[in-house]
Design a protein around this nucleic acid. Sequence first.
DNA 1: TTGTAGGCGTTATCAG
DNA 2: CTGATAACGCCTACAA
Lengths: 338, 338
Amino acid sequence: MEKFQPPTLEDVARKAAVSTATVSRCLSRPGTVRQATRERVMQVVSELGYTPNFGAQAMAARRTNTIGAVIPTMDNAIFAKGLQAFQEEISSRGASLLVASSSYKKDLEEKQIRALIARGVDALLLIGDDRDEEIYEYLAKRHIPYVLAWNHRKAASHTYVGFDNFQAAYAMAERVLQHGHRRIAMIAGITEGNDRAFDRRAGVRKALSDHGIADADFSVVECVYSIDAAGDAFETILGTGRRPTAVICGNDVLAAGAILRAKAMGISVPGGISVTGFDDIELSTVVDPGVTTVHVPHRRMGKTAATVLFSALKNRQPKSRKLETHIIERQSLAPPAS
Amino acid sequence: MEKFQPPTLEDVARKAAVSTATVSRCLSRPGTVRQATRERVMQVVSELGYTPNFGAQAMAARRTNTIGAVIPTMDNAIFAKGLQAFQEEISSRGASLLVASSSYKKDLEEKQIRALIARGVDALLLIGDDRDEEIYEYLAKRHIPYVLAWNHRKAASHTYVGFDNFQAAYAMAERVLQHGHRRIAMIAGITEGNDRAFDRRAGVRKALSDHGIADADFSVVECVYSIDAAGDAFETILGTGRRPTAVICGNDVLAAGAILRAKAMGISVPGGISVTGFDDIELSTVVDPGVTTVHVPHRRMGKTAATVLFSALKNRQPKSRKLETHIIERQSLAPPAS
DNA sequence: TTGTAGGCGTTATCAG
DNA sequence: CTGATAACGCCTACAA
């Protein structure tokens, strides 16, 4: 049997006894074609189940009206939420979104960026700024506008739409100190290739040293963003030197893992040990006790990123946007037992 | 300023002083080109930052090597997890994945399906089977292989890779009865346009009637998949007639919402009321008490779906696959107080 | 091993 | 309002 061929513009044109140009017009600017003609054409279109070939369309029109996004993983509520808002804004402007994920791997991310560009995306959303300079050069060479989200640094070379992870982590550490903690540990995300995790750790470290906490009273262990891994990290921490009275976690998933493990070990939270998170995802509301965390406006960030991208597409110089975060106190942070 | 033009195959060919055919070969089958030539070409490729135009490539080669998926939302761990596995399997076979989401809206789903097909996807993953017949006809007309996941029905007309939601819900309801409950309520997902939610509700209903529970002792309220909505639904249920001793929820998110609200209202779980979930996502481990739920092999389902799709692509007749589920007992379900 | 040339499905430009 | 026709960027016989 011969290989199946989808119907083309020409098939429609022939069957409707008009030219391909007319069919094309019916589809893109119905107003410019006579009612009778249009109806006949549309009839054939649906009979044949015709759908325009996107590749051909993009090639001829020289634009795709689609925006791309490369995120570390969809399996993290913060990206899922932010991207949802990003996508809503994009759709509302008549464009569409193409997403790819990198699993936090630099080389995979680069591959995905290229794939998205090959597919003709007009602009790009990327997470954070920790990637090879080469990629930025490529983007510049191709004149692809992009914004970096989920972080905000003062560097003038990029357009950021995010928040200051360093600052927010600094503030959280100070809050922990205010509660009277003096022996503190941190369960951080993997900082290699992740500027958000890196900045959060740096912020905590700086706050503690600014407030005179000795190095010996602060330990850090990195782990992947999973409940179990965080639990293990928690045990590791407890097994090393003097027990801290508070554990600052790089995000809410880590905090949930720490809390669960603490309870499993018979240590009450915050009675026996305090725990803090970061991101304010639903999870932090569900754990018992609720997690004291940093609220991040994920949805607003997604929406703003889209806005900035569209203005960049209109040749306007894109401008970085810094969003504010704030601490939400729940029950997982309290003064140390004494 | 003139509009920027990305470098093309021809640009590379010219600069490397070879034909476009040679450049094309270097990229797709490096083995067929002399070493020296190849090196020269690749050099130019990276100098120019050349990336092949996907649309043109697809058009000329008449295949894209990409598979599409339309899911209700990424903001639900079950899809995020299953899709991750789906995507891993696809990548491992050298193809790529294009995802779109429908927000549980039928018309949007149809639009997304068409968009994906316009983009040339070779095959499609869809969730459940509740959609207009017209769409299936369209798929057939275009000869696009597809599989329906997250549900399994006996209908021979489709290829399913999923589990029997009805059966699983039936089993869970029986389990609840075994614990001695006789007044039961259900917080179901929105069943309109969602065959999974529909079957779960139907399964529960059937089990209860099979076991002689009177209609008056069973009430159902539907609500969207959110913690808060589930909480509200829980209150609604408690405010109506005699209080049930157990609440069967359509998924774990609903269960978490119910448990949280119960505790907020001062009703202990399972002491004051029992709650069950469905899906076995991480959340059900995190809530206190842990949720008794139906374990679903999301990752395996994703992987299997990909396998089936690839075999369909090889002209093999795709065959439905039914996956098994089982109940995981945690603490949220216990015999009624009295 | 490399080059030539035709065709893939649309859009856009220009005449009628 | 409608119809020719030339791109668009790449692949792939087929030739050399």
